[in-house]
Design a binder for these strands. Sequence first.
RNA 1: GGACAGGUGGCCGAGCGGUUGAAGGCGCACGCCUGGAAAGCGUGUAAUGGUGAAAGCCAUUCGCGGGUUCGAAUCCCGCCCUGUCCGCCA
Length: 424
Amino acid sequence: MHDLKTIREDADRLREAMRRRGALATYGPAIDEAEALDRDRRRMIQAVEDKKAQRNATTQIVGRKKKAGEDASADMELARGLGEEIAAFEAQLGPTESRLTELLLGIPNIPLPDVPEGDETYNVVVRTWGTPRAADGLKPHWEVGAALGLLDLERGAKIAGSGFVVYRGLGARMIRSFMNAMLDLHTGEFGYEETWVPVLVNRASMIGTGQLPKFEDDMYALRDEELFLIPTAEVPVTNLYRDEIVAGESLPMALCAYSPCFRREAGSAGKDTRGVLRVHEFDKVELVRYCRPEDGEAQLQLLLGHAEAVLQRLGLPYRVVLLAAGDLGFGSAKTYDLEVFAPGVGKWLEVSSCSVFTDFQARRANIRFRPAPGEKPRHVYTLNGSGLAFPRIFAAILEHYQQADGSVAVPEALRAWLGVDRLG
RNA sequence: GGACAGGUGGCCGAGCGGUUGAAGGCGCACGCCUGGAAAGCGUGUAAUGGUGAAAGCCAUUCGCGGGUUCGAAUCCCGCCCUGUCCGCCA
C-alpha cells in the first residue's frame, strides 16, 4: 500500500512507476480518483474537526456549569446541534475514506530504479551457474517418477483432483529430505530462525502481505469461517509482527519456515499442466527478512545468495533472472527469479522468487521499528524468497540426474537423508 | 461448544460519565552525583490524522464495531482475543 503522501505529493512518480510496469492504463484512473478523494477527505476532515473542537469546548462549559449548579440547558442544546452537524459530515467522510483505502490497497508497488522497464521480454539473465544437460533422450520427470514408483499422479487426481500429487516410497522420502536439508542449511549456516506457522490465516494477514483484496479468487478459503489457506509461508511469517513496533537492534531479522502452499491457479489452465510443475498444493521452505530501509538492496542480495546455495548444494544448473517491471509481482519492488534447468521437459523452471517489498507490505501490515530509543517508529522493509519450492526441485533432480539405465542418481547432499545413492 | 473473569501507552498496572491522553511503576533518554560505574536524585518519554516554514494548535485513539448521552476508558449491544473451569478431542 502506498502512503497517502505519495498520492498527494508524488502522484506523478506513481504514474511513472505504473508506466514502467506497463500498467498505466490500468492504474492511472485509480491514481486520479485517489488524488481527488484525498482533497475531498482533507476538506471534510477540517470541517468535521472544527465542529468537534467547538463541541468539545461547549461540553466543557456544560460540565463546569453543572458542577456549579448553574443552568446549562442552552449550552447542551448548542452541543446537540453541533453533534448533528458532525454526524452529517461523518456520513460523507466514511465512504470517502473507505473508497480511498480500497484504491490504495489495489495499486501495485513502485519498482526500484534499477529494475528494467517493460514486460517479461526485458527480463535480464544476471548470471548462470552450472551447465545445463543436453536434452536428448531424457524423459520428463512424470515418466521417470511413475516408472520408479516415486510419483502417483492418477491417484492424486482421484482423491483430490487434478493438480494434487501423491509421492510414494522414496519419492515421499525425497520431499521430507528437502524439508530437512533446506531448513538445516538456512538455520545452521545462514542464521535463520526456524518457525512453524499456521497454514490457515485470517483476512488481515492476507491483506498485510498483499494477497487480498485483489487476488481473492486465487485463494482457497474456508466455507464457514473467514480463514484462507496460505499460498506461501510468506503470509504467516511476514505477518508475525503485524501491528507491532520492533526494536531497531533486532534488525535485520531472518525467519524461515516450511509449509504447504495452496493455489487455486484460477485462469492458468493449460500452462505447465503435466507432471508436478503447476499444482494446487505443494511444499516449500520460505525465507523472510525484515530490515531497515537503507539495507534493502544488500539484504536482497544476501537472501538471493541463500536461495542459490540450495541449488549449488544439489548440483542443479540454474540462472538468476532480474525481472522487468512488467513481470514484477503486485507487492514487489525488485525481484530475482531463480530458474533451474530441467532437461527432460527442456525448460527453465522457476524455483524461487526473491523480492524486496520496500515498505509496501510493512505499511499494509503496520510493521514498524524504532530506529533508536526515543525516535519515531518507521516502517521496516520486508523481503522474502523461496528456499526452495519442492516439486520443481523434485522434477529437476529426476531429469538432471537421470541415468542411461533409467535410474536416477541421488545428489550428494540428499544421500544422508535418503539413505541411498540411487533411485531405481 | 458452555460458564465465569479479563483486554488501558515500549512493558506492567490504576482508573466515581465531566481539565484522564490517561495516576503509579518498569524500561529508555538527558542531566546531577562519581576517578569511572552502580545506586541515588532531577527532568523528559504514545501513536495516527489535519493544519503550519517552524514552534505549536486542533482532532482521533483505552481489543474491534455499533448504541445511549450535551459529554464515554467508564453505561448498553454485537464480535474478536486471552485466562480459568466444564464438554469434546489428535
